[in-house]
């Protein structure tokens, strides 16, 4: 039911919007939703922070970009390669890193993000600082996704399927185990949960979602450069999760939307843009520490119960 409403909203937004700029903005929200969703599975649900997730975003973008531009692979094979590489990198990095916790894990993932950033900048294949140009658009059989509207629908189809699958995962044995690790790792392992293994697996899942988002981004904008995957992008991903709501799948969507639209609308403040941006985030966090999704829902429920009490009193 919720999904039907969601799909209808996407279709309506797609068909009612004609400006290519707005269509692209909506597409970016979809891509960012994937990023926030993946990070939320790791951070919000499992309680493991990552300050280097832009590395996987970049890995997805560059893998498919390099393979299609330099080696003329089909983008779909590029996607497969991006996923395989993201899985491998995430496994490799998670095994030592997830032994850490709290700040140390944050610092470790931060370091990984920095290393990948340097790799994107220094390799000749990636075009270094000047970036990678001429990444082809996508086709599904004969259907071109070149038009902004088609690409929007494609990105949102991927996002909705991902949300659907992640929601199922959360409401399962695995999802409970993830939340158990968040609440108390000691107690989780006393329940027979292999916490080390599960943390690695969820890290890999969130890396794959970021890589898919990177793939979608690369083939949308056709030009990528290292600055799209630097430390600030990792921080923005964390902000999306926190603003939208930790451990809230629909919050990821909201956080992604706010952090995509806000910078665009704030350009009217010109040079004060960053200040206003920061202020808005601070105010949201102070007023709604649970994140936008939970916070707004709480206000709604409180208003509902107050109204309920008032009517009960007037009847009594």
């Amino acid at each position: 039911m919720r999904y039907l409403f969601f799909i209808a909203a996407v279709l309506a937004a797609g068909f009612l919007t004609s400006s290519p700029y707005k269509l692209q903005l909506l597409t970016f929200i979809g891509i960012n939703t994937l990023l926030a969703l993946g990070l939320n599975m790791l951070m919000g649900y499992t309680g493991q922070i990552s300050l280097g997730h832009a590395a996987f975003y970049g890995l997805g973008a560059y893998t498919s970009g390099v393979l299609t531009v330099h080696y003329h692979w089909s983008p779909w094979l590029g996607l497969a390669a991006a996923i395989v590489l993201a899985v491998a990198a995430a496994f490799f990095i998670a095994l030592p890193l997830l032994q850490l916790s709290g700040f140390y894990l944050g610092m470790g993932t931060l370091g990984f993000g920095m290393i990948m950033f340097v790799v994107f900048r220094q390799m000749s294949l990636t075009g270094g600082d000047s970036g990678l140009v001429g990444i082809p658009g996508l086709f599904i059989g004969p259907l071109s996704l070149d038009s902004p509207r088609n690409y929007l629908f494609f990105v949102w189809a991927v996002a909705i399927i991902s949300i659907f699958l992640c929601e199922r995962l959360i409401h399962s044995r695995i999802g409970r185990a993830l939340r158990a690790i968040h609440d108390s790792e000691r107690a989780a392992s006393s329940m027979g949960i292999d916490t080390g293994k599960l943390k690695v697996h969820i890290f890999v899942l969130s890396a794959v979602l970021a890589a898919v988002a990177g793939f979608l981004y690369a083939h949308l904008v056709s030009f990528i450069s290292p600055s799209s995957f630097d430390f600030l992008v990792s921080v923005r991903m964390v902000t999306m999760v926190v603003i939208g709501g930790m451990a809230s799948i629909w919050g990821s969507l909201l956080g992604a939307a706010v952090l995509t639209v806000l910078p665009e609308t704030l350009t009217v403040f010109s040079e004060y843009e960053m200040i206003v941006y920061g202020l808005v985030l601070i105010v949201i966090m102070i007023l709604l520490p649970q994140g936008l999704f939970r916070g707004v829902l709480d206000i709604y429920e409180r208003a509902g119960s107050k109204a309920g009490k008032a009517s009960a009193r007037s009847q009594g």
């Binding site: 409970r176 939340r179 158990a180 609440d183 108390s184 107690a187 989780a188 006393s190 451990a247």
Partner: peptide, 13 residues
């Protein structure tokens, strides 16, 4: 199986 001296329930659940 075990329980803990300082109760360790999963508080979000």
């Amino acid at each position: 199986a075990r329980t803990f001296q300082n109760i360790e329930l999963f508080g979000s659940m």
